[in-house]
C-alpha cells in the first residue's frame, strides 16, 4: 500500500464526508427543530446541481454559476416550505413521508421535462481541472481540494451561525425544546421557513460541488439521501456536531472500505472469495457501522439534550 494512494483515498473520503455534512446539516435541523421528515431533501441537492449546470453553460463561469444557483436553490426550498411543508408540521411522520415522497416524484419529473432525461456535465475552468503537487511525488486533483476547502468553510460558517448568533441560539433551543422557543414569542413560522431555505441552499451547494465530477442527473438525490440519513442517525438527530463528525466518519469508512477491503480480505481468504465478498461487505459497511453504534447508543452519538 503506497503512501500516495493512502493520501488520495483519505482526501476522497474527506470529500465525501464534507458533501454528506452539507446535506445532513440542513436535514438534521429540520428534524431537530420541526420534527419533520423530509425525503425530498435529496431533490434539492439535485436541483442545485441542475441550476448550476445550466448557469455554468449560460454564463461560462462555474464560480459565478454557484453564486447565482445558491440563492436560487434557497428560493426553491423556501417555496416548497411555503406551499407544502408548512402545512404538515402538525401532522404525523407518516404524512411527512408520503407528502415529501410525492414532492420527489414531482420535482424529478419537472427536472426531466426541463432538462431532459440525460445528465448534464459541468465543465471546470482550467485552473480547477488540473492537479497540484503537494510534495514530492504526491499529486492531487485541485478540484477535490477545493470541495474540501469550500465544505470546511461552510461548516465553519455554520458553526459560527449556530453557536454565536441569536438565530443560532433559537435554532439550538428549538432542537432541544420546541415549545420553549414558541413561548419566547419568536416568529416560529419565519424561523422554520428560514431554516428550511438554509438547509436547501446547503444541500444545493453539495449538489453543485459534486456535479462537475459526476454530472447533474435525475437519480442523484435519491441515491445519496439514504446515506445522509445514516449520517444523521449516527450523529444523533438535531445535532450539528454529530452530523459533522458522523459525516466525516461515514465518508472515510465508505471510501476506505471500497478501496482497501479486498486487499484486507485477501489476507484472510482466497483471492477469489475476497473478490466476491469485498464489494458486498464494503457496500454494507456504513450500515453495519450504523447498526453497531445504534446497538449501544439508540439515540446516536450526540443526541441533543432533553428531547
Amino acid at each position: 500500500m503506497e503512501f500516495s494512494l493512502l493520501l488520495i483515498q483519505l482526501l476522497n473520503g474527506l470529500q465525501l464526508g464534507i458533501l454528506l455534512f452539507l446535506l445532513s446539516a440542513g436535514l438534521t435541523l429540520t428534524f431537530g427543530i420541526m420534527d419533520f421528515v423530509n425525503l425530498a431533501h435529496g431533490a434539492l441537492y439535485m436541483l442545485g446541481a441542475f441550476f448550476c449546470a445550466s448557469l455554468t453553460l449560460y454564463t461560462g463561469s462555474f464560480i459565478l454559476a454557484i453564486l447565482l444557483a445558491l440563492p436560487l436553490t434557497a428560493l426553491a426550498g423556501y417555496l416548497l416550505e411555503k406551499l407544502v411543508v408548512q402545512h404538515l408540521y402538525d401532522r404525523n411522520h407518516l404524512d411527512h413521508v408520503l407528502a415529501t415522497f410525492g414532492l420527489i416524484l414531482c420535482i424529478d419529473t419537472i427536472v426531466h421535462i426541463i432538462w431532459g432525461p440525460q445528465g448534464i456535465a459541468i465543465p471546470l475552468p482550467a485552473w480547477l481541472s488540473g492537479q497540484v503537487e503537494l510534495f514530492d511525488g504526491v499529486v492531487l486533483p485541485s478540484y477535490r481540494l477545493l470541495i474540501i476547502g469550500v465544505g470546511l468553510l461552510a461548516a465553519a460558517g455554520l458553526y459560527v451561525l449556530v453557536n454565536h448568533t441569536r438565530l443560532g441560539m433559537l435554532i439550538r433551543a428549538g432542537a432541544s425544546n420546541r415549545k420553549m422557543v414558541g413561548a419566547l414569542g419568536v416568529d416560529i413560522t419565519a424561523l422554520f421557513s428560514g431554516v428550511f431555505a438554509l438547509g436547501a441552499a446547503l444541500a444545493g451547494l453539495a449538489g453543485m460541488l459534486i456535479a462537475p465530477i459526476t454530472e447533474a442527473s435525475i437519480g442523484m438525490g435519491s441515491d445519496i439521501i439514504i446515506t445522509t440519513f445514516v449520517v444523521i442517525i449516527i450523529g444523533g438527530i438535531g445535532s450539528m456536531k454529530g452530523a459533522f463528525l458522523a459525516a466525516l466518519l461515514v465518508g472515510l469508512i465508505d471510501t476506505f472500505g471500497r478501496s482497501f477491503l479486498d486487499d484486507f480480505f485477501k489476507l484472510l481468504m482466497s483471492t477469489e472469495a475476497a473478490e466476491t465478498a469485498a464489494p458486498a461487505v464494503s457496500a454494507m459497511l456504513i450500515y453495519i457501522l450504523m447498526a453497531i453504534i445504534l446497538a449501544f447508543r439508540p439515540q446516536g452519538l450526540f443526541p441533543p439534550l432533553s428531547r
Binding site: V37, I226, I233, A283, G300
Partner: peptide
C-alpha cells in the same frame, strides 16, 4: 436493532437497512 428506536429514527433506520440489502445485491456480480 430498529425497534430500539422510535419515530423518525425508526423510519430512517428501516430505510437504511433495506438500502444496505440493495447495495449488497448490486455488488453481487455473479
Amino acid at each position: 436493532i430498529s425497534l430500539r428506536t422510535r419515530g423518525v429514527n425508526f423510519i430512517m433506520i428501516t430505510m437504511a437497512f433495506a438500502q444496505m440489502m440493495y447495495y449488497a445485491i448490486v455488488s453481487l456480480e455473479t
